[in-house]
Design a protein around this nucleic acid. Sequence first.
DNA 1: TGTTCCAATTAAACGGCGTGTATTAATAAG
DNA 2: CTTATTAATACACGCCGTTTAATTGGAACA
Lengths: 231, 231
Amino acid sequence: MRRRDRLRAQTSAEIKAIAMKLMADGGPDAISLRAIAREMGMTAGAIYSYFATRDDLITALIGDVYTSAVDAAEVARDAVPETDPGGRILAWAQASREWALANPEGFRLIYGDPVPGYRPPGDGPGKQAEIRACSGLIGLVAAAWTTVQARQSEDRAYDWADFDRDLVAHVRKDFPDLPPAGIAMTLRVWGRMHGLMALEIYGHLRTVIHDPATVYRDEMHDLIASLGLIS
Amino acid sequence: MRRRDRLRAQTSAEIKAIAMKLMADGGPDAISLRAIAREMGMTAGAIYSYFATRDDLITALIGDVYTSAVDAAEVARDAVPETDPGGRILAWAQASREWALANPEGFRLIYGDPVPGYRPPGDGPGKQAEIRACSGLIGLVAAAWTTVQARQSEDRAYDWADFDRDLVAHVRKDFPDLPPAGIAMTLRVWGRMHGLMALEIYGHLRTVIHDPATVYRDEMHDLIASLGLIS
DNA sequence: TGTTCCAATTAAACGGCGTGTATTAATAAG
DNA sequence: CTTATTAATACACGCCGTTTAATTGGAACA
């Protein structure tokens, strides 16, 4: 029984690994149960012992990929001392971009239409990783909030009720000094990191600029400057 | 011959219209030649008389959708007098977001993985529409450049060689006073508009905030403020 | 040891898909 | 009226996700 479970987990991991390889080679749409089975010397139907449906496999993959992305960002963030909140934001942003450039298919899997008819489930590991990423960003904003607050004092009032109930609970526990506007600011930070990154990954900048790295750096520099952090 | 051409154009338009309807109903992946043919009372193979392959049809659709998006943005922009460059940028941004919310599938078609195995061709109508959108944004930035220049004077130097040759030719003809940094700034503006919009359309904000409209408005307001335009 | 049981796997099938190809019907051109 | 072009068809091919029934093989128990 124990042995059986280990074999099962191992096979499940192999399925995911091969799915990742197929995705890296031929894009997210190259993930097909038949191709995976072919690669493993199995039959397509056999995979249904491990994943009830193809979307379940995709969901598991999204969880793994998202986790790897957030891991990379957090490692880069933690390499910068907490006394430099602007540097931590910059590190997060640049690590995210570098991860995306190194794993474009993973980025599409997370932030785009992952695969033909896939629709994400309500919960699942992807959702959890997303919450983790969001929490990381909120922490970055919270660490800089005293200076941000001074500059954004004229900001429109936000209310806790504007945001997701569970997220609010977490935020008020972990960052008791952060007002609702801090979450709104976090979303703006997220959006600013995401915008150029998505345009670049999906090839929309290629027809304009040869290397968007400088533009992205300038934009992130402007971001932390507008947050009131020197650099 | 004339009559033949007219019928051909009409049928081609009907194919695209039905494809748009299918996309609006069931997402970009609902576009299948068989489904279109079924809807038209034809055979799947017949469509190959009008579009050599399914990707060609998608390409044509992308051109149409992109054009409609840029049209909406330009109409909104032109409703604001040229004496208010900040308002014109704001109008462009909000019209783009509203278009995206009204046509989420269209947004995915343009900015995401349009459809299973599709890869955009080098030229084509989609590229032209993208150039048109980019030109519109450059125009907006150029109109505000004198104030922008004052605030971003410490910006890192850009060179014309950093950008696409054809685009540079157009820019130097249409906006002779805009330096290379103006194109970089345009990309940053584009990215800032795109970021929150993409996150929202792909459902990543839904788990955080109930209505991102205010955040988007704040972000765009901050954008034109950082450009040195009052509001 | 022999037997029972159960999870893993297979083979086959269903319907749907994009894409070609050979063929037939219609229509414009000479 | 004849001929060349072209739209449309029918059919075949190989891919896909998913389901079902039959088969295997190892674990557990007597």
